[in-house]
Design a protein around this nucleic acid. Structure first.
Length: 400
DNA sequence: GAAAGAATAT
DNA sequence: TATATTCTTT
């Protein structure tokens, strides 16, 4: 309003002067006009931005960061000026507020202009009252009240809230995505599962978009077609009817696209640096190791969802065949879509079975995960059995 | 009209 | 680059 007043006054001045000074005044006028536009024009990104934030409810309202506020999306009913509660006005400028209520959502409050400071200072008293009553005394937040305050403060609270996707928050996000599965991993559901107050569906959607894009980047080719690129039902149904293997096409010469077969996530306690969320080969390490146990959608491509691929906690290989039998086994596993207790560790009898099968059918390729014995091992075994000489026509390659 | 997802802006 | 916002589609 102050600015409006100023801008309103200035043109009049200029206009009056304009009659006396032609050129210089015109420049001044233009300048003033541009300044005015800079702050006032509805199409101006800044203002538009702020207005949109307010109207669309994309701001994070810490007043809803109460335990009871599981009302889902908070679209359209919050304003972030309140976050400056208990902080000085000066601190409200370019301030990063890290709120860690339920989901440790770290929320950045950025006041991008002096206008924001003005607005904040203007609104602060009421905000303080409100927030201190809510936060300091545990009062339940009242949407109406929030709305009132927002209105009273006006939509001048021209600042932007950003969700800081901390490792913890992202972990929660990924867990929610996994828990939901591919088909259900939509912002609203993710939001429900995450139960992080203050997060909006838009926040989730944005993050989900980036998440998916990144996964596509990691698995650009064959996996790309597995992703539901659009909401086209045929493609989606194709995708759903053809769940992606939760395991890499592992065999002795399989090379993971990103250059690492198994990331460090499988090592307990080997959580990577939280700095690099997407690009790191350890990105999937953001998944808790247990995630694979409770992950309900075992048909989901683990890597595509930031989930670890096939774990190998003991450095052992896995009994999945390359041959028809093996695929049958694999299919059995994949048919268990929806079974959260997918056991990533093969049962011993299963291993025995696979090994026996491999021995009994030496002409078939080795089952997935089985390593051919080394020449030395074979020779040792032979010598143990009294065979000390190897026929000349047999060499190492034959043995393997 | 709401939500999801892609595209674009900040 | 990360996140928000806008636009399009469903």
């Amino acid at each position: 309003m102050l600015r409006r007043q100023t801008d309103k006054d200035e043109p009049d001045k200029l206009t009056s002067i304009d009659t006396q000074y032609s050129t210089p005044v015109l420049e001044t006028k233009q300048e003033a006009s541009s300044n005015s536009d800079k702050y006032q024009a509805p199409s101006t990104p800044q203002l538009k931005h702020g207005t949109r934030s307010l109207d669309d409810g994309d701001c994070l309202d810490p007043t809803t960061l109460s335990v009871e506020g599981e009302s889902g999306e908070q679209d359209g009913e919050s304003k972030s000026v309140d976050t400056t509660c208990c902080n000085s006005v000066a601190e409200t400028a370019n301030q990063t507020v890290q709120l860690q209520p339920l989901g440790q959502a770290a929320i950045k409050e950025e006041h991008e202009s002096a206008d924001a400071i003005l607005s904040a200072s203007k609104c602060l008293p009421r905000s303080l009252n409100k927030n201190c009553s809510n936060n300091c005394h545990g009062d339940a937040s009242e949407p109406n009240k929030a709305s009132t305050i927002r209105d009273s403060c006006g939509t001048k609270a021209n600042k932007k809230s950003k969700v800081d996707w901390t490792p913890e928050l992202h972990k929660k996000f990924v867990q929610a995505v996994e828990q939901l599965g591919v088909d259900q991993a939509i912002p609203s559901r993710i939001l429900e599962i995450m139960k992080v107050e203050g997060l909006t569906r838009h926040n989730i959607a944005s993050h989900l978009q980036k998440y998916r894009m990144h996964q596509r980047h990691i698995l650009p080719k064959e996996d790309d077609r597995r992703w539901p690129h659009s909401r086209d039902s045929s493609r989606r149904s194709h995708y759903l009817q053809n769940p992606v293997m939760a395991f890499p096409q592992y065999h002795s010469n399989y090379v993971h696209p990103s250059g690492h077969v198994y990331p460090a996530w499988m090592l307990p306690g080997s959580y990577p640096s939280p700095v690099q969320m997407w690009g790191s080969p350890y990105y999937s390490g953001w998944q808790p190791t247990e995630s694979c146990h409770w992950k309900p959608y075992s048909g989901m491509h683990a890597d595509a969802w930031g989930c670890p691929v096939m774990p190998s906690p003991h450095g052992s290989c896995l009994p999945f065949h390359q041959n028809a039998n093996g695929f049958q086994n694999a299919n059995e596993m994949h048919n268990r879509v929806g079974v959260p207790s997918f056991d990533i560790y093969p049962a011993e009898e299963m291993i025995d079975k696979v090994v026996k099968e491999a021995i009994s059918k030496p002409w078939l390729p080795l089952p997935l995960g089985l390593k051919p014995p080394s020449t030395e091992t074979v020779i040792n075994e032979l010598s143990k059995n009294g065979i000390n000489s190897i026929p000349s026509h047999i060499n190492g390659s034959h043995l393997c």
